[in-house]
Amino acid sequence: MPSFSKNLLPALAILMGLSACATVKRFTPDVTKIPLPSLPKFSTLKKVTSILPGMPDSDKATEDDPKLPFNARGTLGYGHTLRLHVYEGSRSTNRIYNGVAMIDAQGVINFGEIGSAKIGGATLPEAVEALKGTFRIGLRVTRPITIHVLSVEDVPVVAITGDVIKDEFIPAWDGMSIQQAVTVAGGRKLGSTNRTVYVIREGNRRFYSSLEAADKAEPEPGDIIFLSPDI
Rank of each mutant, 00 (worst) to 15 (best):
A185D: 08
F135E: 00
G138C: 08
R188Y: 11
G107R: 14
S177L: 07
A185W: 02
R140L: 12
I160C: 00
T183G: 10
V108F: 00
D174P: 02
A130Y: 05
A130W: 07
F111W: 08
D163V: 05
I137S: 10
V149P: 02
S151C: 00
V182W: 04
E113I: 13
F111V: 06
G115H: 08
A159L: 03
D163L: 00
G175Y: 01
V141Q: 15
S116C: 08
W173F: 12
G121F: 10
R188W: 01
T183E: 00
F135G: 02
I160M: 00
I114Q: 04
V149W: 03
G133W: 02
S151M: 00
R143W: 02
I114K: 12
T161S: 06
V152S: 11
G186D: 11
A122G: 13
T134S: 15
I114V: 06
V155W: 05
T123A: 13
E168H: 06
E168P: 13
R188L: 10
V157G: 11
I147E: 12
S177T: 13
D174G: 11
L139F: 00
L139Y: 06
P171C: 10
V155M: 15
K118P: 03
D174Y: 13
G115C: 00
M176H: 06
V184I: 09
G107C: 03
Q106E: 14
S116L: 15
G138T: 12
V149G: 01
W173K: 11
A122R: 10
V149T: 07
K132A: 07
A117V: 08
V182Q: 05
I147K: 04
E113C: 12
I145V: 09
V152I: 15
A172R: 04
E129P: 08
V182C: 00
V108N: 01
G121E: 04
R143M: 10
G107S: 03
D174E: 03
W173V: 07
V164P: 08
I178M: 06
V152Q: 01
A185G: 11
P144V: 12
S116T: 05
R143K: 11
V128K: 04
S177A: 11
I119M: 10
F111D: 01
H148I: 01
